[in-house]
Design a protein around this nucleic acid. Structure first.
Length: 248
RNA sequence: AAGAACUUUGGAU
């Protein structure tokens, strides 16, 4: 059962709803985790109607189920439905609160995000990072910086987020300073820095970083190709495209 | 608040 669920989880994470449905049919028995994975697959593919049907046909729910449904509404910006569910579920945890916060984050509603932040019983790294994002999205980089100063702790994701705030403010050198001081680097932080260089016309810096990167991905290559083509060097871009490695 | 598998929330496009 656990192995079936693991498999379901992989496909759910890949947003491969067809595969999840097929596996779901094949499974000899299903438990709440299986149902939650199905729900999550619907949410990830944006099939909100299907998600609601699945949710309603479930025999029981737990925090995972409620939180998945909340996240689905949040991702769609479905404020009314998210609020209604949030008010009516028997229990809420940090994930539930944070999911409600992401709803305001994605729509850039700083004031509503702040209000919710005040109401929240606890603030964790996800909460704080949402506040960084919503301020940055609104161009309120100074506010994002003060949020940053108020944070009790930081991790790679929050560091990458504040780095992007500097980028969006045009402070590339400061962003690079943060990048160099990151606790670790992963594909997202590297891609973010490369994109920043590529999009601001610093093609050489972008390429330099790409060559140092142990984990190259398509996003970085696309950014650099686009920047090269932008410079009018279409031939060169085509040539690079052909030299591109084929991993992921 | 010992160690123990599968599902939910934050960052690059």
């Amino acid at each position: 059962m656990v192995s079936w669920n693991s498999l379901l989880g992989v496909h759910a994470r890949n947003a491969d709803l067809d595969e999840v449905l097929a596996l779901f049919e094949l499974m000899p028995e299903k438990n709440l985790v299986s149902w939650n994975s199905l729900l999550s697959a619907c949410a990830r593919t944006g099939e909100i109607q299907v998600a609601m049907q699945v949710f309603e046909s479930m025999a029981q729910w737990d925090l995972f189920s409620w939180n998945t449904m909340l996240a689905a509404f949040a991702q769609q910006g479905a404020l009314e439905q998210a609020n209604y569910l949030f008010k009516n579920i028997p229990e809420r945890d940090r994930v539930s609160w944070n999911s409600m916060l992401t709803l305001h984050t994605e729509s850039g509603h700083v004031d509503q995000a702040k209000n919710l932040f005040e109401e929240m019983p606890q603030h964790d790294l996800v909460t704080w990072t949402c506040m960084l994002v919503v301020n940055t999205q609104r161009g309120l980089v100074d506010d994002a910086k003060s949020v940053w100063m108020s944070m009790p702790e930081w991790d790679l994701i929050s560091c990458t987020t504040i780095m992007c705030a500097y980028v969006s403010d045009g402070e590339l050198k400061e962003a690079r300073r943060i990048f160099d001081q990151l606790p670790q680097r992963d594909t997202v932080s590297q891609s973010a820095m490369i994109s920043a260089y590529a999009q601001s016309g610093h093609l050489e810096d972008a390429k330099l970083l790409l060559n140092e990167m142990p984990l190259q991905n398509l996003i970085c290559w696309n950014e650099i190709l686009a920047a090269t083509a932008q410079e009018g060097r279409v031939q060169r871009a085509r040539q690079m495209f052909e030299e591109m490695p084929h991993h992921d």
